[in-house]
């Protein structure tokens, strides 16, 4: 565990907590893409199946369980408890356009052709693009609530911090995983435009709105 990895994990944890608290406190999930949340639940479910086969540490297991539980709790809040506030008219990104190619790629490019390994690879690839429905929704409505942009910033920062973690681990331990690195790069690149808007607008106290 190095400082980049720890900062990445904390950022990831904060993102998920911010989202749940935002929905709970405002009693509304307006502006949040349910489709991205479904993809994230699928990401955690397929990646953390090793909870049953492989124990790494109490920290590792606790975080995995928290991510899985929080992702399903978010889906429950969006599609059940606060369903009336869900902005489905603007949440129209076709997730099968992500799931189908990602499934094919996971079957073709993986470290080992075994069920758990393929599901892990699928989750890494899917995570890299899972935010697209949310970013699509923001671009469609042309704006995001400030709390939603904090959520997106924390979620995007997490994988970017992991990139530094992987650079560190490559030099310190000789450890590298090309699948995770390439997917992490793609994931971070997708956030670039948002990061720019966040830094130039939200951090200066303005609402995140896109130029018309």
């Amino acid at each position: 565990m190095n400082v980049f990895r720890l900062a990445g994990d904390i950022s990831h944890l904060l993102a998920i907590i911010v989202l749940v608290i935002k929905i709970w406190k405002t009693r509304s999930c307006a502006g949040i893409s349910g489709r991205s949340q479904i993809l994230f639940a699928l990401v955690y479910t397929t990646r953390y199946l090793d909870l049953f086969t492989n124990f790494i540490s109490a920290y590792n297991s606790a975080m995995k369980i928290f991510f899985i539980v929080a992702s399903y709790a978010t889906i429950f809040l969006m599609y059940s408890k606060f369903r009336a506030t869900y902005d489905h008219n603007h949440d129209t990104f076709r997730i099968e356009f992500l799931i189908v190619p990602v499934s094919g790629l996971a079957l073709l490019v993986n470290h080992d052709f075994t069920p758990l390994e393929i599901l892990w690879t699928f989750s890494i690839y899917l995570e890299s693009v899972a935010i697209l429905p949310q970013l699509f929704m923001v671009s469609k409505t042309g704006e995001a609530e400030t709390i939603t942009s904090h959520y997106l910033f924390a979620l995007g920062s997490y994988r970017t911090l992991y990139l530094f973690n992987w650079i560190y681990r490559y030099y310190a331990e000789g450890f590298y995983d090309l699948i995770a690195i390439i997917a992490g790069l793609v994931q971070s690149v997708l956030y670039c435009d948002f990061f720019y808007l966040y830094i130039t607008k939200v951090l200066k106290g303005k609402r995140l709105s896109l130029p018309a």
Binding site: D50, N54, S57, N60, D112
Partner: peptide, 10 residues
Amino acid sequence: KIKKTEKDEL
């Protein structure tokens, strides 16, 4: 090749 046991990241 990365072994399953080396997947200590989240």
